[in-house]
Nucleic acid binder design. Structure first.
Lengths: 197, 197
DNA sequence: GTCTATATACGGATAGAC
DNA sequence: GTCTATCCGTATATAGAC
């Protein structure tokens, strides 16, 4: 069965906001691609921004099933899971010729003064991502220095992904993304070596 | 003498694009704040995008005099210069209550499929920034492992800044920026320790 | 180079029948 | 819940006098 109209609208909006940005996606674009009419959309969502909130909520709920589970298929080592997650973003860049990166990061910088509910959902998406990485680091705590701040380190992994994706899109090249992940990998190696002693 | 109209338009556009974004800044906003009329702007710039190109070019030319020189006042140590540069972005966040970060990064993610000249000027801005950091690292080469890729490391510094700024703006808090810079500092410490042995 | 007035398109959102 | 038709503001850009 084809998804109900509301879900279809959210799905199309998710796709188009990621592809073209929030401001550059018109309500008419969404209606056209979803095969719906203005009246339907405004029946479910009072404003375009409410549709954005639904999109951000779907991203947040999808962190586990849509992002982590596929990325971690067949990867059990917690530190390798961190880098498998980064590899997934790399694959998105490859598939899109370096035009598609992290939709949350793009929206976070596109919307300069977002209304509080929007900003909070963006932050909640980052928090969920960082928390998942932090659980990996906790699982690997025996291989890291005891005094390392694992929350800071998890934030730093997200920083590396977002900063690397931004530069890759701008240069239309994977080089800067790979350089960033290489340096993060080197940092992890040195942390693990410090533990060995 | 008050700046010539053209320069004033570029200056106002630079400010408003950084504050509100490119798409959310109307030509009328710029004209109003610059005290100019439509005819003047379109006399100098055929389209709004040409004005953006002038803004990006001014950023690029300003990397030395407007960014590096102020950040490096009284700082001679090349590695401290890297962190002084990051501290300058932190200060921008403080001054703006975490709303103003890096205008180049914001534009890079706001414009999803920029016309080639725009994308190239964004990339040139990143290149100039990275090259400056790389020169610092070259100046400190004796304190870093001989086999470290200093270009990758310079890219990683920009990655840290951009990723940290993005999260700080989203959380309206310096914590994630500070966490990222702390981890980068720890990485540098470990690189220098590796050299000592 | 600068001014005013305006063309023209498209945006989000609404009205009201079905 | 869905449809068509449309309101109305604002956007970029232009025309042509001065």
């Amino acid at each position: 069965m084809t998804p109900a109209t509301r879900d279809r609208l959210v799905g199309v909006a998710m796709r188009l906001f990621a592809l073209k940005g929030y401001g550059s996606t018109s309500v008419a674009d969404i209606l056209h691609e979803a095969g719906a009419n203005s009246g339907s959309l405004y029946h479910f969502f009072p404003t375009k921004q409410d549709l954005l909130l639904a999109v951000l909520d779907r991203y947040r709920q999808g962190i586990g099933p849509m992002l982590l589970e596929p990325a971690w298929q067949g990867v059990d080592d917690p530190i390798e899971r961190v880098f498998a997650l980064l590899a997934r973003y790399r694959q998105h860049l490859v598939n899109s010729e370096c035009t598609y990166g992290c939709p949350i990061g793009s929206l976070a910088l596109e919307l300069h003064e977002p209304d509080p509910p929007v900003r909070e959902l963006l932050a909640a998406n980052f928090d969920g991502w960082v928390a998942a990485v932090e659980r990996c680091l906790d699982d690997a705590r025996d291989r890291l220095p005891a005094d390392i701040d694992r929350h800071e380190l998890a934030v730093f992994v997200l920083t590396t992904m977002e900063g690397g994706v931004m530069q890759a899109r701008t240069h239309r090249s994977l080089d800067t993304f790979d350089a960033s992940v290489n340096r993060l990998r080197d940092y992890f190696r040195r942390l693990q070596q410090a533990k060995d002693r």
